[in-house]
Design a binder for these strands. Structure first.
Lengths: 126, 126
DNA sequence: CTCCTCACTCACCTTTTGGTAAGCACCCCA
DNA sequence: TGGGGTGCTTACCAAAAGGTGAGTGAGGAG
């Protein structure tokens, strides 16, 4: 409800979308929530090796503000909080599909270049 | 030819793609070069209001390293340098299409929410 | 002669981002 | 009684990103 754009105004749609996914772990969080559906805080933490608790909460809060994730708190002891994607989060993930495929191509391209370098004797064999 | 991945290794394709477009102006640079085909340095500068020369050169160099843009220097006086998208740059732009549309939807969504707030008396009329 | 344009580069500074470590309040398990 | 798990928050730091303003060197306009 009461929500203002964090940054902006945006010059084009790419701007607005990148604003929402830029952040060291946001892409991975999106991926985790999309593949698992519902995840608890500690599950996400274990799924993103290397993330700090601070960054995870910070990113989750921002994504909640941006309407991408839903946060459900159960008033229990020990505390339980479940995160899932909203409709907008799922549509963002869908829109990210082609970009992900492009990224895979890029990774593959880099690997083949490395192999070519190795075969040309430019790099030592591992 | 001799090119190593700037960051990485990447966990998924989204990672690899976001690495390449994250940077305050890269999305806009891509857009500019895609719509105009070929642009000179100063043209790009004028097309991206607020960009500093340092950031523009820095971003262009990184995108060149990443194989997204082609840089053609004409040994003239005064100097002339033309930038254009490579094949990979164009394919990245294509992959960015759905994301751009999602961003446009987000912008539109935010605007309607603002209008609703205004109509509910939560915000002053401009 | 002076200023402007072109496409930068460099040194310096501020802002933003992310990491580290600690604490909290309660519970369960041994 | 001590330790671990739960989901955070806070204070403090380090690194990265980005901005500012100057200088370059030749040519063209006024």
């Amino acid at each position: 409800m009461a929500k203002a754009p964090r940054n902006g105004p945006y010059i084009c749609g790419i701007d607005a979308a990148l604003d929402v996914v830029s952040g060291k772990w946001k892409g991975l969080i999106l991926w985790e929530l999309d593949t698992h559906g519902v995840r608890r805080f500690a599950e996400l933490r274990r799924g993103l090796p290397g993330v700090s608790e601070k960054m995870l909460t910070q990113h989750l809060r921002e994504m909640e503000q941006d309407g991408l994730v839903h946060r459900e708190v159960y008033p229990e002891v020990p505390p339980r909080v479940e995160y899932s994607l909203t409709e907008h989060g799922r549509s963002l993930n869908a829109a990210l599909g082609p970009l992900g495929r492009w990224g895979m191509d890029r990774i593959a391209r880099e690997r083949t270049e490395l192999v070519e370098h190795r075969d040309a004797g430019l790099l030592p064999r591992p």
